[in-house]
């Protein structure tokens, strides 16, 4: 059984655009088989042994096995009409949800795993960045993250030093804000919304909400799926598959400051699902 905090969270179960309308679909959330149906514009139902609460937000169907104590986090940029917004990928990965989130927050692997796209040797340094855990907003925030990227997005012609902000507003969801290559005053938004299938298996849904007036959806999807496909074998080879929350379990380096904050935040929430709790 998931811990109460996890059970009461909203979790994504599918992208609306990828779900046939009017036909019941099956999926699994937190070891629980779920049947759901998308009925049409803005309406869906879901049930396990009883009816479940449903929310449609950011192009996804969300549900909860418990009683959600809070509304889903806000992404104000999603409402901006000139953005391209859609599910870029739904990828099954044999790993725990917090490991998947933590990988999304990590920059140090870019040159080695996403060679030629999100990083390249010798630009391997993770420069000093700031991390804050906000009690008021109940989220972890990493700012001033800078990294040289050969191909920051589908809208980019050349490499650039890109600035990132990472936001973790939900134990199994993270959002990154990345300087736009076509409008320096605004940021591309990419979200990873993880659906824990079990403690060691996930479906990771990736939202893009980007400024790109020249690439078609297929090009953006292929870019994101290529990057995600590169992460998959790395994630699946992490052991233990559950994220250890004991600070002594793994040896962090300076580049891991956001991971440390994330692990502490999960500990403070009393989360035990998909993690190895600190003794």
């Amino acid at each position: 059984m998931p811990d109460p905090t996890t059970a009461n969270l909203w979790h994504p179960i599918a992208a609306c655009a990828d779900t046939p309308v009017g036909t019941p679909q099956r999926t699994t959330l937190l070891d629980t088989p779920i049947t759901y149906t998308l009925h049409g514009e803005g309406h869906a139902t879901a049930a396990s042994s009883s009816m479940l609460p449903v929310l449609i937000r950011y192009g996804y169907i969300w549900t909860s096995l418990g009683t959600p104590t809070a509304d889903l986090f806000d992404i104000p940029e999603y409402a901006e009409p000139d953005r391209r917004r859609f599910n870029a990928a739904s990828v099954s990965v044999h790993v725990s949800a917090p490991r998947a989130v933590e990988n999304f927050l990590d920059m140090s692997h870019f040159p080695f795993v996403h060679t030629g796209i999100l990083g390249a040797e010798p630009h391997t340094e993770v420069k000093e960045y700031d991390v804050e855990t906000s009690a008021e907003r109940d989220e972890v925030l990493a700012t001033r993250c800078r990294f040289f990227q050969p191909q920051p997005s589908t809208a980019a012609d050349q490499g650039a030093e890109v600035e990132y902000v990472y936001r973790v507003p939900h134990p199994n969801c993270a959002i990154l804000y990345k300087s736009s290559v076509i409008d320096e005053t605004r940021r591309d938004v990419i979200g990873i919304f993880v659906q824990p299938v079990s403690q060691e298996r996930v479906r990771a849904h990736m939202l893009v909400c980007v400024l790109d007036d020249r690439s078609d959806d297929e090009t953006i999807k292929r870019f994101q799926q290529t990057v995600f496909g590169q992460d998959k074998p790395i994630l699946e080879n992490q052991f233990p598959k559950r994220l250890p929350l004991d600070p002594r379990a793994e040896s962090p380096v300076r580049a891991d400051r956001v991971s440390i904050a994330y692990r502490r935040w999960l500990s403070a929430k009393g989360i035990t699902y998909g993690v190895i709790p600190a003794a």
Partner: peptide, 11 residues
């Protein structure tokens, strides 16, 4: 190249 997404949109 012409991208035909097999999953999840089953293009």
């Amino acid at each position: 190249s012409h991208f035909i997404e097999l999953y999840p949109s089953r293009a």
